[in-house]
Simulated scan of single mutants.
Amino acid sequence: MADNTLWVAALTAGTAVLASWVTSRGTARAARIQAEAAAATVQADRLRAARRAAYVDVIEQAQRMGDLYWKVTDAHKITDAGERLAALEDLRLRLRGEYAVLRQRVWVVDLEGPAEVASAADRLRESTSDNFRALEAMIAGEADAAQRFDDCFPPYWQSVVTFVEVARRAVHETRTD
């Protein structure tokens, strides 16, 4: 009888050791999986925050340029030719500076991605070219330049709206290209 008790005790102890080992391996694996999932979540949140900040910067800059475009239209209505020319030249300089900031912010969006948003940001940047050329023509005194400038605003603003839509989708996507 004593021999059976010893075997049962040894088998029970062996089973307990094996169960403990299996449990510890499972616990370690579960902890590793949980840590990896948490790290992935943190990384995705950081990426989303970086992208969102880059997108907001482009939107704010586009708004600043849009405000200056309105000022160009107002400046063109100044009746004194010398005063009008000075105002338009000042706005041209301001728009050049604002364009440089926009270009830099578009590059950041290109870096942050995804490609669809970067393309929309670049189209927004490109949409400023016609406005600037029309402003140059206004300064040069071309007769139809003011109308050309006004006609450039709707396509510019549409590129801003399109960028916002594309950026919104990208921010709310769960995957992180």
Rank of each mutant, 00 (worst) to 15 (best):
Q158D: 14
V117W: 05
W7Q: 07
Y69Q: 12
D80W: 02
E142T: 06
A100P: 00
A16V: 08
A145K: 09
E173R: 10
D150N: 00
R92M: 08
T176Q: 11
K77Y: 08
R64K: 10
F149V: 04
H172R: 10
A167P: 02
D110F: 00
S127K: 02
E165R: 13
L135F: 08
L102G: 02
P114M: 10
V171W: 04
A62E: 00
A143R: 14
L102S: 03
A134L: 10
W7C: 05
W7K: 12
D90M: 06
D57P: 00
A13M: 10
V164N: 15
F153Q: 01
T23S: 07
I33S: 13
T79I: 09
A38W: 05
D57H: 12
E89A: 02
A134T: 09
A38N: 05
D130A: 15
R169D: 04
A38P: 01
S119I: 08
A115Y: 08
A170R: 07
G113S: 05
S127N: 04
K71N: 10
G14T: 04
A75Y: 04
D177L: 12
A53S: 08
L18N: 01
F163Y: 03
V161Q: 11
V161Y: 02
D67T: 07
E98G: 02
A115N: 07
V160R: 12
R133C: 00
R32I: 09
L95G: 04
R103A: 15
L6S: 10
S119W: 06
Q34M: 13
V101Q: 09
A170N: 03
Q61I: 01
L95Q: 05
A170T: 01
Y69L: 13
A140Y: 09
F132E: 07
A137Q: 15
A134C: 11
A62Q: 05
A40C: 06
C152V: 01
I33L: 15
F149H: 03
R94C: 00
A35F: 13
A145Y: 10
R52N: 14
V108L: 04
T79R: 11
R148N: 15
W7T: 07
A37D: 06
A118H: 01
G97P: 01
A81H: 00
V171F: 02
E173D: 03
W107P: 00
R32L: 15
V160Q: 13
L68G: 03
A13H: 04
V160K: 11
E112S: 00
I78M: 09
